[in-house]
């Protein structure tokens, strides 16, 4: 462990616990400190990495004789006019070009990946494969039919159609439950991963525990003395 590692561990643990201070249920200057620090760090890093990217792909490319890249640089500079109230209209052109290119690139293929291939994957043989495969395929086929009938809006749902739509509705509830469970698992994983980062290797554990105690003690002290609200910057 070097002194730099120690400083990084202390800052990371303290700021993370400051972030978690939002769970206290009241706005706090500790949370504001951590939030603003993160925004500052994130913005700084994004600017540096992107400037480096522009230099490597744009400037060096132009130097190597790829003159068409000048057009990209000019369009990029035009975007910067957005900050000037009088000339902000100039930024619309490069933004429109970027959006158009993005839509063109994405829509051309989304029709296959998001639509046709998905339909093709649903139309599968229902009587081949092992028992588990057959069960999966039947489940998918039936769920698709039931759920599609739920979304029939132009005719009155009566008899078997109504039954199918009702079953489809309940299947969607089951799907929502599964999605919620996956989401919870994901959020828990984010928290666990962060805590692991703060507690590994083992020499970081006392720093983590100390940060927890200090932040909690600070929160309670600030709350009791009425400083919690006074010291929290306005949004």
């Amino acid at each position: 462990m070097t002194p730099l590692d120690l400083i990084i561990a202390i800052v990371a643990a303290f700021l993370s616990m400051c972030m978690f201070s939002t769970l206290y249920g009241k706005s706090s200057p500790l949370y504001a400190l951590a939030e603003e620090s993160y925004i500052g760090f994130g913005t700084g890093l994004t600017v540096v990495v992107n400037v480096l990217y522009i230099y490597r792909t744009g400037i060096l490319g132009i130097k190597a004789g790829n003159w068409v890249l000048i057009l990209g640089i000019i369009l990029g500079i035009m975007v910067l006019f957005r900050v000037h109230p009088k000339y902000d209209y100039i930024a619309r052109l490069p933004i429109a070009i970027a959006l158009g290119a993005q839509f063109g690139l994405a829509l051309r293929t989304t029709i296959f990946t998001g639509f046709l291939d998905q339909i093709r994957a649903t139309i599968v043989p229902l009587f081949s494969g092992d028992a588990q495969t057959i069960l999966y395929r039947w489940t998918i086929a039936l769920c698709v039919i039931f759920m599609l009938t739920f979304f029939l809006y132009t005719i009155e749902l009566k008899g078997p159609l109504k039954w199918s739509a009702t079953i489809g509705e309940y299947m969607m509830y089951i799907a929502f439950g599964a999605i919620f469970a996956q989401t919870f698992m994901g959020r828990l994983a984010l928290f666990v991963g962060t805590m692991q980062y703060l507690a590994t290797p083992p020499w970081k554990k006392p720093i983590l525990v100390a940060s927890m105690v200090i932040v909690l003690a600070l929160l309670i002290a600030l709350d009791k003395t009425g400083l919690l609200e006074r010291w929290t910057p306005e949004e």
Binding site: Q182, R187, A189
Partner: peptide
């Protein structure tokens, strides 16, 4: 992928675009 992406990513495994999906930290 992360947990919240699993329901939207799984269909691409069924279509064969992804050969396999490793779900979240689990």
């Amino acid at each position: 992928c992360i947990g919240v992406m699993i329901p939207t990513t799984k269909p691409y495994v069924d279509t064969g675009i992804f050969k396999a999906l490793l779900p979240s930290m689990r």
